[in-house]
Design a protein around this nucleic acid. Sequence first.
DNA 1: GTACAATATTTGTATATACAAATGTAATTT
DNA 2: AAATTACATTTGTATATACAAATATTGTAC
Lengths: 150, 150
Amino acid sequence: MKELNIKLKTKAILPLASQTVINLLLTNITIKTELMSVLKPHELSLEQFNVLRILRGQKGNPLNLQDIQERMVSKMSNTTRLIDKLILKDFVKRTECKKNRRKIEVYITASGLDKLLELDGLVNGAEQKVTSKLTIIELKELNRLLNKIQ
Amino acid sequence: MKELNIKLKTKAILPLASQTVINLLLTNITIKTELMSVLKPHELSLEQFNVLRILRGQKGNPLNLQDIQERMVSKMSNTTRLIDKLILKDFVKRTECKKNRRKIEVYITASGLDKLLELDGLVNGAEQKVTSKLTIIELKELNRLLNKIQ
DNA sequence: GTACAATATTTGTATATACAAATGTAATTT
DNA sequence: AAATTACATTTGTATATACAAATATTGTAC
């Protein structure tokens, strides 16, 4: 509570539920800032990077937009336009599905795979950095608690 | 880990640090969705609501833009334009500071206070809802862990 | 007291997010 | 097989976010 008051420069006494919500929002900003500091120089957003990783996970097989969306962290973002951005950067390719022309299939390109290879270590480093202040036991406990909230 | 794999529809085995980061991002979406479901009908964003609460905390005294920004959860957003929106809704007033004409002072209006009164219970309810699956001890532990990350 | 630096806010711009509506395609019903 | 419904993606629009540049005011050094 004391730390929270310092962060928000206030003396207000907040209920535990409010403290938790604010702390989660603040932690989110910390994490996004850290990850973006790695991705920004490569002109990738967090979700763009995530979609590249999802496509790599397919090992050469394509995914259609819906399947991609289901695997994304934020299901709300506009997948069509996100893929457009990745196509402009030549990290993915899009082809029409022959079996069902409503669908489009998305592949990761060789240069997309290269970029991921370049980023893997950096992103892992950022993830390590933000979690490094907790022990393994604490991290497991944190995951357990977060899981209960969702 | 199992739950995470289900959420992301993948079988990938992720390091603990990555799991934690993704779980924090997912939890953030849960919380924002819950809070926005309360605020949306009132056409307020999360930060707009937050700024109103910050101003109420001043008990009639004004705050300038910088002071507001320091107290905000997300310090990145454009405070000038956020205040513009609140002025349009007649929830705050802005006056030029006489001592230092570079500064502008922002007050909450009576109708801003009314709106907050209307929202207090709803927002508290949303906060309770998202935290209700944890015990008080777990919530305290969660706050402690989040504090260490930030 | 003029020039320069520091401060506070505003404006501009590019991108991201959120969501509704439109388009095109396939499947189902009658 | 025409009409309707469901599905997959795209487009439109409004707002939010992120950050750089511009403007206006104040403080300070010479």
